[in-house]
Design a protein around this nucleic acid. Sequence first.
DNA 1: GCCAACGTTGGC
DNA 2: GCCAACGTTGGC
Length: 165
Amino acid sequence: MATKKSKRPRRYWLFKSEPDVYSIDDLERDGSTYWHGVRNYQARNLLRDEILLDDGVLYYHSNAKPMAVVGLARVCKEGYPDQTQFEEGSKYHDADSDPADPRWFHVDVAFVAKAAAPVTRDEMKAEPKLADMMLLQRGSRLSVQPVTRAEWRVVLKMAGLKESW
DNA sequence: GCCAACGTTGGC
DNA sequence: GCCAACGTTGGC
């Protein structure tokens, strides 16, 4: 990727992951990872264009018990092509994607912290300040989604965490 | 396990 | 370009 947009205030995001596939513990063990396998255009656009270095990431366990924000990560590399789209036999392979004009992008994220206590979906639903959070809207399926600064602060507080980078 | 919501595909 | 059929997501 060439240079991105000019500097702008840090933005905040929520990344969903099924813990059976890749949990916060996996990220802690690995230190960082490339967030591959996203095959949704809206999420792709965010990963390619909007999610920039040092942005904050709420790490959410979906399809899990409990469903919860379980930690924090930060973006440590900006959007670049997801190589798994070109890997024959990969479940993420996309035969229609042109290597000269890749269809799917991802960022790298680095582990920051685990929540002292996971912030469960139920707790978030019970918090009026989070009423507008995209995660909690009916039918919201986007796996990479924006979080407002206010929501970010509320969730961090609920998690017993301070912003630490 | 069910199914509503949503995205994608493909026939017309 | 419409929209029915289908596949996936992900909460419940």
